[in-house]
C-alpha cells in the first residue's frame, strides 16, 4: 500500500475517495429528494383553478360580498363616500403596514375594494362582510381569532396581524364585471 500513502501528512488517497464518494452520494440523495418534496407543492390542476369572474351589479353601496377564489374568500366591497374619506384621512405614517388607500384600489373605481379575505395573522376569515357582523374599531373588518382590526381600506390598524389584507391581482372587464387572478 506504499503508493497510496503520502508519508507524514496523515491523509491517504483512500480518505479522499471516502470523502468524494460520500459527497457524490449526498448530492444524489438530495437530488432524489427534490421530486418528492416538490410533489407536495400545488399540482397543475390546483394552479389551473386560479381565476374567477364576478358580477358586481347586485352589490349596493355600503354592501360587500364574499367570492371564492383559490379556496379562500375574496371580499368585494362597494364603499360609501364616507368610508373612502375616512380611509384617506389617516396619515399613512401612522399605519402598521403603511400604504395609501389609493394604492389599494383601481383609479376611477375608488368605491370598489377587492381583498383576499384571509387574516394576515394566522389565516382566519375576518368578520364584517355580511351585514350585522362586527366591523371592528375601524369600520372595516374584525378578526375574531386573536382580535385584529382592519379599516375601510382593509389595512391592519390594531391587533397581532402584521400586514394589510392583500389586494389580489384583478381587472375590470366591464363596469360591473371583474376578473380575479
Amino acid at each position: 500500500m506504499a503508493d497510496t500513502m503520502h508519508a507524514g501528512d496523515g491523509q491517504t488517497r483512500r480518505d479522499f475517495i471516502y470523502l468524494a464518494g460520500a459527497a457524490m452520494g449526498g448530492v444524489g440523495a438530495a437530488a432524489a429528494l427534490w421530486p418528492f418534496i416538490h410533489s407536495l407543492n400545488p399540482a397543475a390542476d390546483t394552479l389551473a383553478l386560479a381565476t374567477i369572474e364576478v358580477d358586481l351589479a347586485p352589490i349596493q353601496p355600503g354592501q360587500a360580498i364574499k367570492a371564492m377564489w383559490r379556496g379562500k374568500p375574496v371580499f368585494i366591497r362597494n364603499r360609501t363616500q364616507e368610508e373612502i374619506d375616512t380611509a384617506r384621512a389617516v396619515p399613512t405614517a401612522e399605519l402598521i403596514d403603511p400604504q395609501p388607500d389609493q394604492a389599494r384600489v383601481k383609479e376611477g373605481k375608488d368605491n370598489w375594494l377587492v381583498l383576499v379575505g384571509v387574516c394576515t395573522h394566522l389565516g382566519c376569515i375576518p368578520l364584517g362582510t355580511s351585514s350585522g357582523e362586527s366591523k371592528g374599531d375601524f369600520g372595516g373588518w374584525f378578526c375574531p381569532c386573536h382580535g385584529s382590526h382592519y379599516d375601510t381600506s382593509g389595512r391592519i390598524r390594531k391587533g397581532p396581524a402584521p400586514l394589510n389584507l392583500p389586494v389580489p391581482e384583478y381587472a375590470f372587464l366591464t363596469d360591473t364585471r371583474v376578473k380575479i387572478g
Binding site: 418534496i37 407536495l40 407543492n41 400545488p42 399540482a43 390546483t46 383559490r70 379556496g71 379562500k72 384571509v118
Partner: peptide, 17 residues
Amino acid sequence: VTLLWGGFSVDNPTLNR
C-alpha cells in the same frame, strides 16, 4: 405554508397528506 397545504388554502391535498 404552500408546500404544507399543496395549494393556496387548507384543502383536499392537505387532508390527503
